[in-house]
Each structure stands twice: as C-alpha cells, then as structure tokens.
Amino acid sequence: MTTLKIDNIVKTFGKKRALDHVSLEITGTFGLLGPNGAGKTTLMRLIATLDTPDSGKIELNDLSWTQPHQVRKLLGYLPQHFSIYKSLNVCEVMNHFAVLKGISEKEERKREINHILEAVNLQDQKNKKIRALSGGMLRRLGIAQAILGDPKMVIVDEPTAGLDVQERVRFCKLLRRLAENRIIILSTHIVEDLEATCDHIAIINEGKVITSGTRRELTKHADGHIWEMDSPMDADPPIPEQAIISTVQQGDHYRIRFYHDTELPDAGQVEPNLEDAYLYYMKEADHV
C-alpha cells in the first residue's frame, strides 16, 4: 500500500509556528481533526505543494516534495473555499480543468468528465452556471475537479463546512466511494465527518500532532473515562461544567455525558465515541 510520509515538518509564519515538528504516515482515507487554527490547512497546503516547509520532508515512495511539478501530477486538491468562473457552466469549467490537467484528447475528456459528473451526482447540473449551484453542489464540483486525471492522492480541506446535514452525509459517502486505490486526506473540525469517512485519524492542536491511529485506537484512549448520569432539570449538574460533553433532555431530567477519571455515584460508564475521545485528548492537551 502506498504511504505518504511526513517527517518532522516545521512551518512558521512570522513569529507563529503553524506546524511544530509534525510527523505522520498516511495511508487510505486519512482525517486531520483539530480546532480552528490548529494547523490543518497549513499542513494540507504543504501536501498540496502550495507552500514549502521550513524544515522536514514529505515523500511518497521515492517521490520527494522537493520536486513539486512531479508531485502535482499525482494529486488533486479541493481548498476550503472553492468557487471560480461563476458565469460559466459546469461542463465548460470541467472541460477547462481537464485541459489544464493534461487530458488533451477531446473524446477522452468528454468521457472522463461524464464519468466523474455521474460519480459526484452532478450530471443533471452540467449545463447550470456555477453561480446557480448550491453550496453542496459547489463542493461536489470541487471534488470533481480534484479527481480529474485519476490522481493517486486527493486532498480535501474542510469539505463540509457550511453544508446542511443532508449534503454533509452525501458528501461523506462520496468521499468514501472515491477512496478506492487512492490516498484521501481530509481535514475538518466536524468529528462525525471523520467517523463516516476515515480509517485513520490524526488529532492536531497548536501545530502539533497530539495522536494518530485508527478510530478504535483513538477511542480506546478514552476507555473508562466517559460516563453518563441523570440530573434533575431544576438542579445544577453535579459535575464541573468543563467536564461535560453533552446534555440531552430526557423527559423530566437531563442525561449528562461527561468525562471523569474516577467512578462517581449514580453515573454509568459508557463506550466512548470519536467525539468523546477527541474532547478527552483536547482536555489533556490543554492541561499540559
């Protein structure tokens, strides 16, 4: 299996260190999870060859990121904000992107564009102007241009930001489908997106990788620390505010989910999900 190796990357903007000795091994569908400003987009831009690290290296097999032109032949990139050529229609824009990606044969271009538009469910919108597309359609067009030319690696930055729930679910399914035989790197701060899409996940905070592993490996870390208990609606919750993960109303009481290192009376231990684990890691990071 092809592995993208990120080794000891440092990137600084002025006095701010955006990435601080980041090392990762990326295979399959890989998610970068972290709060806003954690360094996810900086890392994505480095992988997409749009920026260069101050130190460290990125490699895919024998290919080094010191040869960006060679790397660009293998990658597709969807940035956080994608919108261009608003007065033209989907087909015209896709055809242009295909020409830029080097698909010079007209028939081949047409075939590939039709195939991709079918895959991203934009076939019915092919004659629509870009400005007339909804947010979800625009993201799907963005992923369509990214996978033109069948790249070995697709980088998708915050793909579901601003989408409604239906569009988000549809987009995650699409990413899952596209993940066959290629590396997909997805960055987000929405935990559910990664649960639905990624096999491997890294949590980043303040430019550092806090942890990385499979979903199970990540959630295992919070095993034994996640609890649920009922609390009357008219009383203050018996646990500190900062330890609460969620509060759900159930009839005449609240069901509180929280983390705690020791057992509490009336509280039941529950199996952690990725969101619990993420918050637990972030809490630990904040306390360091």
């Binding site: 997409a48 060859t49 749009l50 032109h69 660009r72 032949k73 990658l75 597709g76 990139y77 969807l78 940035p79 904000h81 994608f82 919108s83 261009i84 050529y85 992107f97 830029l100 990606k101 080097g102 963005g142 241009q145 990214a146």
Partner: peptide
C-alpha cells in the same frame, strides 16, 4: 481565488 487550487495543477 482560483490560484488556491490551480497552482496545485501540473
């Protein structure tokens, strides 16, 4: 804003 992804093209 096309340069944000067109610059990643080969």
């Amino acid at each position: 804003g096309g340069s944000t992804f067109l610059f990643s093209y080969p």
